[in-house]
């Protein structure tokens, strides 16, 4: 890349673990499970550098526009405003540009063209694409046919790897480590893909995994069996009060469509609502995460607690996506700048 002016920046990643960082260059990101523990740690280490964007505000000082001249395609076959905006923000903050569509309904791409054809066309327009698609496996397929990296921004109810990375980053940032923690997941354990992906990623670490949810939304059998076979299935409880100590509480939304009877839904919704009273026994150190948007699972009175991290978590989405884009497209952290 023809950089402008001298650059003396040394990547924190290269200093730490060049090999794991190298593993990202030109690579697609379909599932967090495709990455080793070392690779995930390398990404989280690299992401620290980009935290400065949060401190420095619009001046971007301290962050090189390392992706100047690069173009990121945003192919959103279903709307997901947060994911799209945070990728867009990450790319713009690195000096790159974005193109794409926010909803296939208003794009001519949806008119009967196959996903494979769309990818083959769009790969000529950009250096990498973020794909959000209603069908499970869409990102895997796109990554197979594309000659440029494909980043999965959510494929149906299957994977959303950048959410998992930013969740890990947030926990590590707040707790200083990913080892020795007691992490509780609460809400929809059955259908919540953030729960499944993060649980699986946390198996890399010495984490005590606990689960709190209504019986009809308990862990899916395959994941439960997997945890059990690894000896990693911790406490399971129907009430937050019965789960014991926690360092981190990851709350997810319980969706109304899971309950045929609206009365059942109301009851469950109120039982899994987190407010100051429910959190009091855990003390002020408890870290509370939520992938957002929330409906009423976390009372707004919780927002002021020092452990309420969900808005920080959302900002970290930009940080982690900046690191990922830079590593994949060979910007600063990838070490290609001379």
């Amino acid at each position: 890349m023809g950089g402008v002016g001298p650059r003396s920046y040394t990547s924190p990643l290269m200093a730490h673990d060049g090999h794991a960082g190298e593993a990202f260059r030109g690579r697609s990101v379909v599932s967090a499970e495709d990455f080793t523990k070392d690779e995930i740690l390398a990404l989280l280490d690299a992401a620290r550098h980009y935290d400065r964007y949060q401190d420095d505000g619009p001046s971007f000082s301290g962050i090189e526009p390392s992706l100047q001249g690069r173009v990121l395609g945003l192919l959103f076959f279903e709307p997901s405003t947060r994911t799209r905006l945070s990728f867009e923000s990450a790319m713009l903050r690195l000096g790159g540009k974005v193109l794409g569509f926010a909803d296939a309904k208003i794009s001519s791409f949806s008119k009967g063209e196959t996903l494979v054809d769309t990818i083959r066309v769009v790969e000529g327009y950009c250096d990498a694409v973020v794909l959000r698609h209603p069908r499970e496996g869409a990102a895997r397929l796109a990554a197979e046919v594309a000659s440029i990296p494909v980043l999965n921004g959510g494929d149906g109810s299957n994977q959303h790897p950048t959410q998992t990375f930013l969740d890990l980053y947030t926990i590590r940032q707040a707790a200083g480590t990913l080892d020795g923690l007691k992490v509780g997941f609460m809400g929809d354990l059955r259908y919540g893909r953030t729960v499944h992906s993060l649980t699986t990623a946390l198996l890399h670490f010495d984490v005590d995994l606990k689960f709190i949810g209504p019986e009809n939304l308990s862990l899916p059998k395959d994941l439960r069996d997997h945890l059990e076979s690894q000896g990693r299935l911790g406490a399971e409880a129907e009430s937050l009060a019965d789960v014991g100590d926690l360092d981190v509480l990851y709350v997810t939304r319980i969706q109304q469509e899971r309950f045929p009877d609206p009365m059942d839904y109301q009851r469950v919704r109120n039982a899994y609502r987190v407010d100051r009273e429910a959190l009091a026994p855990f003390g002020p150190e408890l870290k509370i995460l939520h992938p957002l948007p929330r409906v009423n699972e976390v009372a707004t009175e919780v927002d002021d607690l020092p452990g309420a991290l969900y808005f920080q978590q959302s900002r970290n989405g930009v940080t982690v996506r900046m690191a990922l884009l830079d590593l994949i497209l060979g910007g600063q952290a990838g070490g290609s700048v001379s």
Partner: peptide, 9 residues
């Protein structure tokens, strides 16, 4: 809703 049921793959 698997992609294999929508695309020729």
């Amino acid at each position: 809703t698997c992609v294999t049921n929508a695309e020729e793959v």
